[in-house]
Structure formats: C-alpha cells, structure tokens
C-alpha cells in the first residue's frame, strides 16, 4: 500500500511537470498574439527576461502537490478543485520568486549551473513548504519540506545533465517532467519511511480505504478540513477524534463530548492503540494495524 502511494504521488508529479510544459506552450502563443495586436514589447524576448516559465512550472507542480492527499483519499471533487486552485496560485507565485532569484544571482557572477540548481532547490522547498503550511493543524514537518528540497535539487541536477547532453527534448520537456517527478518522488519516499501505522475502514461506504498515518497528529471526522474524512456514516461529528504519536505509540483521543469513540467496543477518552484493535466512530468501524 505504501509503495503504491509513492508511485501514485510520483505519477502526479510527472503530470504536474507536463501540465506546466503545456501551459508554457500555450503561453507563447498568447503572448505572441498580444504583441501582434498592438501591445509592443510583449513578445518572446520580453518573456525570456521575465522568468515566466518558472511561474508556470511552479503552477503545474503546486496544483498537483497541494491536492495529492485529497486525490489519494478520494475526497469531494469540489474540495479538490479548491485545493488545486489554491495550489496553482501559490505555486505560480513561488515559481516566479525562485527562478527570479536564480536569475538575479547572475549579477554576482555566479555560474548559471549553480544558480539554476539553487532555483530548483528553492522551488522544491517552497512548494512543499506552502502545502505543509496550510495543513498546519497537524504540525509542520520540517523533514518533509527538506525532502522536497532534496527532490528539487536532484531534479535540477537531472535537468542540467539532460541539457548537457542535449537530450532535454522540445522546449526542455523531459527535463521539466523528470524534475517534477523527482520532487514528488522524494516526498513520497520520505512519507513512506515514516509511515508505520495505518487504519483500515471495515464497513460501509468507504469500505477498504486505508488511512496511512504519516504525521505526528491527525484529526478524524466528517468535515472536509480533517486529515481523514468519514462522510459516509451516521453519527460522525465534524471533529470526532484526534490521533497523535507519543513515544512511538499511537493514541486516540475523543474530541467531542457529545459523541463516542469506542476502542474494542469500550468507550474511551484517551487510549494507546494496539495492533488489531477495532475502533468504532459513529457507525464506522476501523481496524488499526502496524505495517
């Protein structure tokens, strides 16, 4: 299950890179049309100066990285659209910033290779950082942001190598796609190494879904702001339970006084979970296990 998720994330990263590339292609034509229609100066020369490709790469990657968890857990489509929009805006801004900085570094006569690598690394760091920041209720994980940065660095390295051997394809297609792939692959690999507990839904509408526990704390409930959403069941309230890690053990805590959390059919307020425990939240039954 874990390796499937890594594969899923890296596929999404690949698609994000491709998305950025297609947007770049269409952008050229848009700017060409604008320059013809009378706004002078808006042509490819201007584009080359304005780091607009960086923004579009950031847009594609941000879209995908922001929505990756929601896509993986099959959340509501409207919710995913909102996340994608958010990721696109923030991602384009960060891309603009990172590649602008890289270009700016040339004032100090730093070699283009180094500046390109730094801008890729910064892109990885910032994009993962923004996606983490807006899930901050479960604690920002610095390691995950750093893993994004490492992914960006390696992606940038691949990009450089492809450029060196002149294999980066039409308008650097392969380089872009592979860089996006490596960023999300490294995040996936990091989450893979952290995950050692999981919750499986046994019954009802979400039967067979597996919640992989890869952070230090989670929220569980009906509303879409939770990490794990249980919306096919009766008697699940908006913020129902809180799961957190302590001394390499997972604890479950009841957050709503009016509703119940049952562990092994006994009502609990706060309890460490054991392997094979059956947790009942509302009418949903979950099984806890260690991978």
């Amino acid at each position: 299950m874990k390796s499937t998720r890594t594969l899923y994330y890296s596929t999404l990263g690949l698609l994000g890179g491709l998305c950025g590339w297609t947007l770049m292609q269409s952008g050229f034509h848009v700017f060409d049309a604008l320059s013809i229609s009378g706004i002078t100066g808006l042509n490819i020369v201007w584009l080359n100066k304005f780091i607009y490709e960086g923004a579009l790469i950031g847009l594609g990657l941000g879209m995908v990285l922001q929505a990756r968890v929601s896509l993986w857990y099959h959340h509501d489509l409207v919710h995913i659209m909102s996340k994608i929009f958010f990721g696109a805006v923030v991602g384009s801004a960060t891309g603009l910033f990172c590649f602008g900085l890289g270009h700016f570094m040339q004032i100090w006569h730093i070699s283009p290779i180094l500046s390109r690598l730094t801008s890729w690394t910064l892109l990885g760091l910032f994009i993962v950082g923004t996606t983490e920041y807006f899930r901050s209720h479960s604690g920002i994980l610095l390691q995950r942001i750093i893993s994004g940065g490492i992914g960006g660095f390696i992606g940038g390295g691949i990009f450089e190598l492809l450029m060196l051997y002149q294999m980066s394809g039409p308008e650097h297609l392969y380089g872009l796609v592979l860089a996006g792939f490596s960023i999300s692959l490294f995040i996936g690999l990091y989450e893979n190494s952290v995950t050692s507990f999981a919750l499986r839904v046994l019954t009802g509408k979400q039967e067979g879904q597996i919640f992989l526990l890869d952070q230090n704390s989670f929220t569980l409930g009906y509303s879409s702001q939770n990490d794990f959403i249980l919306n096919g069941y009766a008697e699940v309230c908006n913020l129902h339970a809180h799961i957190y890690k302590k001394d390499n053990q997972l604890f479950i805590e009841n957050t709503d006084a009016d509703s119940e959390v049952l562990v092994n059919y006994r009502q609990v307020d706060q309890q460490a979970m054991k392997k094979g425990d059956v947790i009942k939240i509302g009418t949903a039954q979950l099984q806890y296990y260690e991978i």
Binding site: T22, F28, N48, E53, P112
Partner: peptide
C-alpha cells in the same frame, strides 16, 4: 540562463 525559448514553439 534558464529556458531560452525558440521563436517557433513545438505545439
């Protein structure tokens, strides 16, 4: 620096 684009894009 980074991507310098041809005058004729692929697509």
């Amino acid at each position: 620096y980074f991507l310098k684009i041809d005058n004729n894009p692929l697509l």
